[in-house]
Design a protein around this nucleic acid. Structure first.
Lengths: 359, 359
DNA sequence: CGATGGTATGTAAACGGTTACAGGCCGGCC
DNA sequence: GGCCGGCCTGTAACCGTTTACATACCATCG
């Protein structure tokens, strides 16, 4: 029996490899590897001996080596447009938490709402080694899909739901959510609508929401006149400014729908500053239910998307696909319309008859 | 000359390795490697020939293999308590952006304000292979430092600034920032202070802020009575509730300092709901300057920390250390006190003489 | 009692790059 | 003309795991 080495002093742990563990334990590297990954295939005694050596030496497996041998990294990559948006932050947190629980790590990147950047980031992520990729939206650089497909990397779109490609996306049906919200406002008697949207150029979610609004209006032969439409960035200040522009027209809209939470908050604050009676003279509705929506003096009607749930489902879905299992979660995340004090009957005219009304 | 292969059809790119590129280009793997990493060491002609083969074959380097060979991953790991906090989200975005610019990737994890979780996440990150680690705060699991030190992984604390260990942290001096804010309020004549703090158990930033407040008060022989002190989570609702509890005591405080942005917003909203005259009867101040602070009907006095700058500097600092360069940025991030309408002279009593006043 | 089958372990070849070292070639200089 | 030194390129070892395959051992069974 070879002399056992002195117990490793804490300073050594730097370059301990599996090989050393094996040598010290007096077994082969294969056995150590098995003891760690498939303990049931190793005898009780050895397993314990190895375990003790492992933590005496402070060995930590070398991810790159393992990745090279297994062709798996245990990492998924996500590209978000931004992180300062409440819903993305929540989704990210949900995603991260669930991945941790499932034993995966998260490699994160931002696209800043640019399709080119998104594509470049995806390339970097793949190069760095990710087992799957999570994106936001369904609109991507034309090369992106082919690139991932060639390498057989699973992808998932989030924050959208595409009925035509089941399994390719997880999130709310943006179009339908705003369709329903708009119908509700129409039923309250509103006829003159204003819309403050996010920029739709590279944002298919924003576009889908807009389509939902337009479709609902069209069903009642209504439309958003140019003077009552504005597109902009997603800050409170922008919301104020665009709201002022729209609300001070004549005739003014009786309902203003905002494409996201901050725009809605801005609209609400500006309406108060302008002394507009909400919801008496004008109703305001938003999208995404962040806490402030419910806490303002006049709480804001909005669409609640459980963003953290989007993140968690995305995690489960991708991991299932990586591991060759069938994903079990539903892909569509319910978008609930939360009615609050900021919306009410249109001033003047009586509300329409229920749903069937043709106007 | 061996017959040249047919141009790769797009469907092949799956398993192209550097070896294949070399074979197709008719050179050795070493040359291809050099052509990619140190192009100046390869002749013009070869470089071009190789480049063309690379993109004809759609080769993407295999990160794990490279990492194994170079003992570098080009990835840094970050562990944040949460991501739904405005300042962390901004810092994360800054961090991510800067890392991308520097050619690094970001591996992200959350601790949920638990030191144990933070430690576990760090272990996972190291196992997965990160060249450096970014943390929040200076308070960590006792094993964390030794663990990273043994492996010579550079670490940086963020959102704190520790004068005693220069180079170990980047962020504002929380204690001093709130010291100054409190002094300002004292100079306005305030004597009865209320404080709504974040939970300080595992949050040394919150604790430092609290110390700053107490130190400033102590200089004037003042203190926060138990009835005017509350600790809680960081939601608007919590801010409302704690504010109500504190503001409805008798005698009530004339100034309430809140440990973060959402608590301050909650306090402000609740003060309006209670019909308290702000700043006439009571001043409110917060911490962290998110957009809503400036946009509420009564804008809130606060401490502005450039969180995205914290993230960017952290990125530059860590990359510099990884690459063996001396970091060039300053470690302390200025925390600016932003005076707004929510704070004003104390009701009744005249303000103190300037700074030297002993009370 | 030898063939058989199962279990626990070892051997060694990948995995896909990087890089120290070793030529080969060529021009310039004595 | 031979030697020297620089520039390019090739050879092959190595990075730290995993895993297919081989092997040794042991109990069981015909």
């Amino acid at each position: 029996m070879p002399a056992r080495r002195a117990p490793a002093d804490p300073a050594v742990a730097a370059g301990v490899s599996l090989r050393m563990v094996a040598r010290v334990a007096g077994v082969s590297t294969a056995t150590v590897s098995r003891a760690m990954n498939t303990p049931e295939r190793v005898s009780e005694a050895l397993r314990e001996r190895i375990a003790s050596v492992v933590d005496r030496l402070g060995w930590v497996p070398h991810g790159a080596a393992r990745a090279l041998a297994t062709r798996r990294t245990g990492t998924i990559g996500a590209v978000f447009p931004t992180l300062t948006h409440g819903d993305f932050a929540r989704a990210l947190e949900g995603l991260q938490g669930e991945l941790t629980r499932l034993g995966y790590r998260l490699l994160l990147a931002c696209s800043e709402y640019s399709l080119d950047q998104e594509y470049q980031q995806v390339r970097k992520l793949v190069e760095r080694g990710v087992d799957a990729v999570l994106l936001v939206g369904a609109l991507h650089h034309p090369e992106l899909r082919p690139f991932l497909d060639r390498r057989a990397v699973p992808v998932l779109d989030s924050f959208v739901f595409d009925r035509d490609h089941p399994g390719a996306s997880v999130g709310p049906d943006n179009r339908r959510a705003l369709f329903r919200l708009t119908e509700h406002l129409i039923a309250l008697g509103h006829r003159r609508f204003g819309v403050i949207a996010q920029e739709t150029a590279t944002n298919d979610r924003a576009r889908a929401r807009l389509e939902g609004i337009r479709a609902a209006l069209a069903q009642h032969s209504l439309a958003v006149p140019p003077a009552h439409f504005a597109e902009g960035r997603w800050t409170i200040r922008e919301g104020r400014e665009l709201f002022r522009r729209i609300a001070t027209t004549d005739p003014a809209p009786t309902a203003v729908i905002c494409g996201n939470a901050w725009l809605a908050v801005g609209a609400m604050l500006e309406s108060q500053a302008l002394g507009i009676d909400v919801p008496g003279a004008l109703s305001i509705a938003g999208y995404d239910d962040i806490e402030i929506m419910a806490e303002l003096p006049i709480p804001i009607t909005t669409v609640r998307v459980l963003s953290d749930e989007v993140g968690r489902r995305a995690a489960r879905h991708l991991v299932a696909r990586i591991e060759g299992r069938a994903p079990s979660d539903a892909f569509e995340c319910e978008a609930e319309i939360v009615l609050r004090a900021s919306s009410g009957p249109a001033p003047g005219g009586p509300p329409l008859p229920p749903r069937s009304g043709q106007s």
